[in-house]
Amino acid sequence: MPRDSLAEIADDTLLVLYANGDRDAARLLTHRLLPRLVSFAGRMLGDRAEAEDVAQDVMLRLWQMAPDWRQGDAKVSTWAYRVASNLCTDRLRARVRRRTSALDEVAEPEDGAASALAGLIEADRMAALEAALAQLPERQREAVVLRHLEGLTNPEIAEILQIGVEAVESLTARGKRALSAALSGQRAALGYEEAEANG
């Protein structure tokens, strides 16, 4: 099918076309989904190589299940975010396990989160945000990233995280409060106080 006529087609229809042998459908689906998956996984994991691995894994699973995809069951993007979310969670938990086993052999520092933020005095704002996001509990981080950085709606996030909309609202609100608290001590380092003084 010509690519121009594919541009208006919904993701799930593209997936069916892909399953029926349409190569342009695969290219267009990749163009639509891959940047969002890399962005989301990148914010969750803070590491490009890992984010790309997760994104590739999600796309691989998408191609594999394309013949069995039932139209109307769920949005393809929602499904992809959910799989990416699970894969990121697995990797984050593996990191915690590795860190825990490593710290067992070394004296544990007091208040790791605070010291991590304190080390970001010279870091730029994005690095500070990433560091602050990394301190959030997994679910809060997922909700904040999906809502405020990926621009998804609360019902979409509820479907991805498989929780209620009210729970999403609660997670994002708590996540934002925690981010504000974590970043409030960094205002000078982030240049906000200087900007206000000049303004």
């Binding site: 042998g21 695969a26 990749t30 962005s39 914010r43 790309e52 994104a55 594999q64």
Partner: peptide, 20 residues
Amino acid sequence: AMQPSDDLTRRVLADAERLQ
């Protein structure tokens, strides 16, 4: 936002072709 590298895009499209 982090963007996918060209290499990743190639890998994903190669997977798509292989599994289609």
